[in-house]
């Protein structure tokens, strides 16, 4: 039992990060139909900026806030400079543009920062907490708590505020949204900024556990994309569930089956789910217009 619990804690911590990355994918996808493969770079920027802002003299909390702002600005710039000019291009072309952006951002981080691994101090110490015989670091609680707070805030934002609702409206039908007076450009900007901010926040929360480096984003983008697809692309609830499931599958796979094939376990599960449910767990069943 305590072994199972230990695996579960590991899986939930990692899964919470995947969930945040998947949420980032979802928000941008809903607003613009773009799968943003530079999503992992936002996570990297969150961690790396915080590390370097604090090295350059900012106190840690300020450095973290500045990092979130910096990542959001990068998100806005990505939309303004790369996605908007390509409006109307094929979906695959847009994906390649975001891949180009991710290569560019990795290159930039490597020049502006460096190629080393970096860490941040844990927010509230390293003394493990004992839960029914399994242990949990305080930082894991920060990660899971952070993810939970983000989910609640997003839910409130999208269902209770006018601006949030206008983003949702745009995602359902851009033309109609424009007709009822929603400023679609602003909605797009906000989505990129929001998605980048969530990514950066995830990066800051998780760096004390996982460390970070200029190329930390690639793997996270891959897993976050997998999580978003498993949950059903475009569904925020799906993104969270998908992220947690992928994290738990990896941990259980490593613990009970084979640590060499733990990632394979996660991908096999995704493949099996897709064969049965071609739109993921909570995906919209789309109908094609002829």
């Amino acid at each position: 039992m305590e072994t199972f619990l230990q695996f579960l804690f590991g899986g939930l911590t990692v899964g919470a990060v995947y969930a945040m990355v998947a949420l980032g994918f979802t928000i941008i996808y809903n607003a613009s139909d773009v799968i943003n493969f530079a999503q992992g770079e936002f996570v990297m920027l969150g961690g790396m900026c915080t590390v370097f802002f604090s090295l350059w003299g900012l106190p840690l909390p300020l450095a973290a806030v500045a990092a979130v702002i910096a990542a959001s600005l990068v998100g806005v710039a990505l939309n303004k400079l790369a996605i908007e000019p390509a409006r109307g291009a094929n979906v695959v072309t847009l994906i390649i543009i975001t891949i180009g952006a991710s290569i560019f951002l990795r290159g930039l981080a490597q020049v502006v920062f460096d190629k080393q691994f970096h860490r941040l101090p844990s927010f509230s110490g390293d003394q493990p907490i004992d839960v029914l015989g399994a242990t949990l670091t305080p930082q894991s609680l920060w990660v899971m708590g952070g993810a939970a707070v983000i989910v609640v805030v997003l839910w409130y934002f999208f269902t209770r505020t006018t601006f949030g609702k206008s983003i949702l409206a745009t995602s359902h039908n851009r033309l109609a949204a424009r007709l009822v007076g929603i400023n679609v450009e602003v909605v797009l900007l906000a989505s990129f900024a929001l998605s980048a901010a969530i990514g950066a926040l995830a990066g800051i929360l998780v760096t004390p556990i996982t460390l970070t480096s200029f190329d930390a984003g690639t793997m996270l983008a891959l897993k976050g994309f997998a999580a978003a697809i498993l949950g059903g692309m475009g569904n925020p609830l799906g993104a969270v569930v998908g992220g947690l499931l992928v994290g738990i599958a990896e941990a259980m796979g490593a613990g009970y089956l084979s640590s060499e094939y733990k990632d394979a376990v996660a991908f096999l599960i995704i493949l099996c789910v897709l064969f049965v449910m071609p739109s993921g767990l909570f995906g919209r069943r789309g109908t094609e217009r002829v």
Binding site: A89, T93, I99, G100, I103, F104, G107, Q110, V111
Partner: peptide, 21 residues
Amino acid sequence: AEYEHMILGAILMAVMIFLRR
């Protein structure tokens, strides 16, 4: 040298934006 990746990424984006097909 170290600017290689930045330039590669920028070229990729620019080509796809301006020669999108």
